[in-house]
Design a protein around this nucleic acid. Structure first.
Lengths: 217, 217
DNA sequence: CCGGCAAATGAACGACCGTTCAGGGGCAGT
DNA sequence: ACTGCCCCTGAACGGTCGTTCATTTGCCGG
């Protein structure tokens, strides 16, 4: 057998309904999310995506300049929305760093449970973007991380947090990275069919985070 | 431009020394690790890997049945070794679940810092394996998770751990997943050029884990 | 009814993919 | 010196890829 076999059988979901319900550009975005999440950007072809929308390959280029720009478009929209709701949750949580951290975790984890597909694509497929498209996504990620670092710093300075030390000093950036890794990768294994609701997940992760940073009760 | 542009410029490292020093099959494994880690399995070609070893594309098939089997081979060896050292660290740590958990985290995190490239490939590229090759990797991952769950259960039953509740009951599996996500993804951002040593990372993560599960001092 | 225009089609292009295979070199054992 | 055997080479195969483009479609204001 000399044929290059697809990494997974390129089963294209029926869809059919997509085409009528929303404008084609939205159908393309939705189909791309689904396909990228299930099989990964490099092995999903333009033909796969467009067939899932009931269109043919050429029609993509009436809406996006390239496959690469399509990926950037859907990642950037998800990432921007995530940054927005995280910022908003923190500012709405008052001034207590414990409340801020808890609010952040709740919003972040619940979003990664509810929008598993989008979160998974935004976090896993970013590496396929070329240098020009990847910059603003990374900026947004750093901004989110810095929000967490800011909460931790405020908690430490006010004496409400007592996080573990790293070689004798505080490394709040490492702690923030560790916590964000945990929260982000919920989207890799959480399934709505399980026994835990999204609210319970959010509560569990908030509890663990507050404990990890040594928040006073 | 109608040419399909590579996701990243397929810069092939000089190598040259590889060929002489070790048997070719080892050079192929090393080159594959490096290339898969840097650019991802689907976009790394057989020609890329073999050129990095100073060989030509056809020579791969004297050592591996296919590109897929090569990926499985290098992932399986890494994963098997990880499972082994984790088991061994836990049994060598005595009977106190706090010591067991700390020992597990130390070994797991230090390995993911030191062997970043291997860990990254084993965790990130597993999805490209076909169904026949993926089964035993997943089994090993479950086994490692169950080791953590076992430690947590022992800690709870002995009253030494008091982990957060999930909807009124203990969900040790979810806690184990959350912790493993955190430990695993160290390999995504830890760089030996940073200010934190591997030992400090291991200590930090062990501290956070013990706090998260409510270990008594 | 008509002209115009955005949007879709599907063949075509140039490139590259994983894998196969006939040919060839080098070296151990006899 | 000859015979196997292992390993490597590089052309070839059959296929897929992202993208382009001439052509057609379908809709809208007049």
């Amino acid at each position: 057998m000399t044929k290059r076999k697809p990494v997974r059988p390129a089963v294209v979901v029926p869809v059919a309904t997509e085409r009528e319900q929303r404008p084609p550009i939205e159908a393309i975005r939705a189909a791309a999310f689904q396909q990228f999440a299930e099989r990964g950007y490099p092995v999903v072809t333009v033909r796969d995506i467009m067939k899932a929308c009931g269109l043919t390959q050429g029609a993509l280029y009436n809406h996006f300049k390239s496959k690469d720009e399509l990926l950037h478009d859907i990642i950037a929209s998800t990432q921007g929305e995530l940054e927005r709701i995280c910022q908003q949750a923190v500012t709405a949580a008052g001034d207590d760093p414990r409340a801020k951290l808890a609010a952040f975790v709740r919003v972040y984890v619940m979003r990664h449970c509810r929008l598993r597909v989008e979160a998974l694509v935004a976090n896993r497929e970013i590496g396929w973007l070329d240098a020009a498209h990847v910059a603003d996504i990374r900026r947004s990620r750093r901004a989110i991380r810095d929000v967490v670092v800011g909460i931790l710093r405020q908690g430490v300075e006010s004496g409400l947090f007592d996080p573990p030390l790293t070689g004798g000093r505080q490394d709040l950036k490492a702690i923030a990275m560790a916590l964000l890794d945990q929260w982000t990768h919920v989207s890799m294994w959480y399934g709505p069919g399980g026994e835990i609701t999204e609210e319970e997940m959010a509560q569990l992760y908030a509890d663990m985070a507050l404990r990890a940073v040594g928040a006073r009760p």
